[in-house]
Simulated scan of single mutants.
Amino acid sequence: MSGNPARVRLQGPDGAQAWVSLQGGQVLSWICAGRERLYLSPHARYAPGQAIRGGVPVIFPQFSDRGPGPRHGFARTQLWTHAGAGRFLLRDDDATRTLWPHRFEAELSAELGRDSLAMSLRIANTGHEAFEFGAALHTYLRLDELARAGLIGLGGRRYLDATRHDAPGVQHEAQLSFAGEVDRLYPDAAGGLTLHEDGRRLAIRSDGFPDTVVWNPGERLAADLADLGAGEHRRFVCVEAAAAAAPLRLEPGQRWQGSQTLTVQDPH
């Protein structure tokens, strides 16, 4: 990865490991049972102020364009501090306050188990005024072939379809398959999901985040994204733990926490 930002290696049991970029406080890699479980674009860009395509970008304080600030907020483009033991911190400064005039502390923690990766995002209001925010763990899950993958656990759920200007819909299928661009926000649908492909299974649980977002750019959009490229959409799907449908509110001194845990359930 040319131009790599500073990274921290986390070591877990039975050879599990992860790499976290200080740029964005972003998990870039998670190797479990000898297999890479996250997708990182071969065309990802590593430069100050640049979002890194892949891994687990931290979305804060705005989800997508649901607000007046930069798309998906600024946390994914800022330099975080490693606080040890898998903890990474971002605090407001003059630069962030020009984009969002609030005082805060964000903490990402990543913990490796023998077959799991648990990530938590904590937001604290360190100022004297209440604020509202959106947040997500924008998790890129690696696949061998998108067409052979399915996501179980969202059957019967309502969603907003961003490919049709947030038109409402209901997923009638028990399993979500992927053909063409998918960009769905499922309000009040959190956790209890399973991603499967060719006999491999990944359980996805979230707590604190009220919503789930599922995204894949499809062939046409992927080809137009310079940091992704033609055909790369076939190698991942994003399943995001999110607070996106409605903003969260923190009073001065209050804290919020949301987490996402990925557990490998491959047959042995």
Score class of each variant (00 low, 15 high):
L221R: 15
V56G: 01
L141A: 01
L221V: 13
E111Q: 14
A245T: 07
H102C: 13
M1P: 13
Y140M: 07
A135V: 01
E197W: 01
E251S: 12
T77S: 10
A33I: 00
D161M: 10
H165L: 14
H172D: 12
S259W: 03
Q175T: 15
S177C: 12
L108A: 09
N125P: 04
A75F: 03
C238V: 03
H268M: 02
A203L: 11
W19D: 03
Q171N: 12
P267M: 09
N216Y: 12
A6T: 13
A106I: 07
M1G: 15
A106C: 15
Q254A: 12
R200V: 06
R7Y: 00
F131E: 02
R35P: 05
H43Q: 14
A245Y: 10
D198S: 14
G156P: 10
C238T: 01
R97G: 09
D183A: 09
L117Q: 04
L28Y: 01
V20K: 03
R37D: 02
G25L: 01
I52E: 01
G153I: 02
N216T: 15
R45V: 15
R235F: 09
G12Y: 07
L117R: 03
G208E: 09
G34V: 05
H172V: 12
D93R: 04
F63L: 10
R235C: 09
T77C: 11
A136I: 06
L225F: 12
E111N: 11
R158V: 06
L250T: 11
L195V: 09
V239T: 05
